[in-house]
């Protein structure tokens, strides 16, 4: 059985994650066809509800839904505008409820918004990132990407580098990766490592150089420039000096180790300007896999367990 809403990685069993990733393989194949579309969700309506600016996640969900032949509508708003108009989040939810949607993909600056939304609507709610809480589909597409590259996830050593404290990508990925048996270490400035993260079943360190030779995957997080303004670290230069990935640090890595990043990349901060072009920097993989994984999820959550439709024509 698949879940009704995807709000947090906590909801998924390892079997469910396996099923999502396995099904994503089929949708990856659909994406290579000339006609990249199957009728699995024909006549169903998916609403992209974005209360925070996003390009890649919104487009990825939109493409995924379209590959399944769903109708897609997009609603972008600023939650503060709703409040100033006197409308509560629940009012927005009830408006959407009245539209008879099948799925709502929601991105919000405020943590917990998808969870609250799921209590007010009949549609399936997919969390596309809520505050610093979770970004479960990012974690699933990352698992998928890792599995395609390494054949499995169990036993891999993964270092997540950067602003763990404010990162929903980190929270979802730490849950997902540890659940699938990877050994995860969080690395970053002491101010950006949650004090209690030691209880998450991961290791924590500030010393990137010491860890690099042991890692199979270096997962870089985007470092927002405002963190420096808020004095989480003294300067961007200091950040790069200790936690930025450059050629010297790449040379410390195992030859087969890979570099991942949820995007958008902050060149010159968490990663030296010329690195993203390297073969082992597999951001493009993550992006294209994202469509397949999100299609897989929507298919499993909305379409049930029916046979995956064959190509419309060969």
């Amino acid at each position: 059985m698949m879940i009704k809403h995807l709000l947090s990685i906590d909801q998924l069993s390892t079997d469910q994650i396996d099923l999502i990733l396995k099904t994503a393989d089929s949708f990856g194949e659909v994406g290579t066809r000339t006609i990249k579309k199957v009728p699995a969700l024909r006549g169903r309506t998916v609403c992209n509800l974005f209360f925070e600016p996003s390009t890649r996640t919104r487009l990825s969900f939109e493409l995924a839904a379209k590959r399944l032949s769903a109708d897609v509508i997009t609603f972008t708003a600023d939650s503060r505008t709703s409040v100033s108009k006197g409308e509560s989040f629940k009012d927005t939810a009830l408006t959407l409820q009245a539209m008879g949607l099948d799925a709502i993909v929601v991105r919000h600056t405020s943590g917990g918004a998808p969870k609250r939304l799921s209590q007010w609507v009949d549609a399936s709610v997919l969390n596309a990132g809520d505050g610093a809480n979770e970004h479960p589909t990012q974690a699933l597409l990352d698992l998928y990407t890792i599995r395609r590259r390494f054949g499995g996830i169990e036993g891999l050593r993964i270092g997540i580098v950067g602003d763990i404290a404010h990162s929903r990508v980190a929270r979802s990925n730490i849950k997902a990766m540890t659940k699938m048996g990877a050994q995860v270490t969080a690395i970053g400035p002491p101010t950006l490592l949650p004090v209690t993260a030691g209880s998450w079943g991961i290791d924590i360190t500030t010393d990137l150089d010491a860890l690099l030779p042991k890692l199979d995957i270096v997962y870089l997080l985007r470092v927002q420039k405002e963190r420096q303004v808020e004095q989480f670290f003294p300067s961007l230069r200091e950040y790069s000096l200790f936690w930025g990935l450059d050629r010297r640090r790449v040379d410390l890595m195992k030859p087969e180790a890979l570099i991942m990043h949820p995007g958008p990349i902050n060149r010159g901060v968490e990663v030296a300007g010329d690195l993203p072009e390297m073969e082992r920097f597999i951001v493009a993989d993550q992006v294209s896999n994202g469509i397949a994984v999100r299609a897989s999820l929507m298919y499993l959550m909305l379409g049930g367990s029916q046979e995956l439709p064959a190509p419309e024509h060969s």
């Binding site: 939650s79 503060r80 409040v83 509560s88 989040f89 629940k90 009012d91 405020s110 917990g112």
Partner: peptide, 10 residues
């Protein structure tokens, strides 16, 4: 009620 039905941060 409506103020407690805003998003958590609001």
């Amino acid at each position: 009620p409506e103020e407690k039905e805003y998003e958590f941060e609001l």
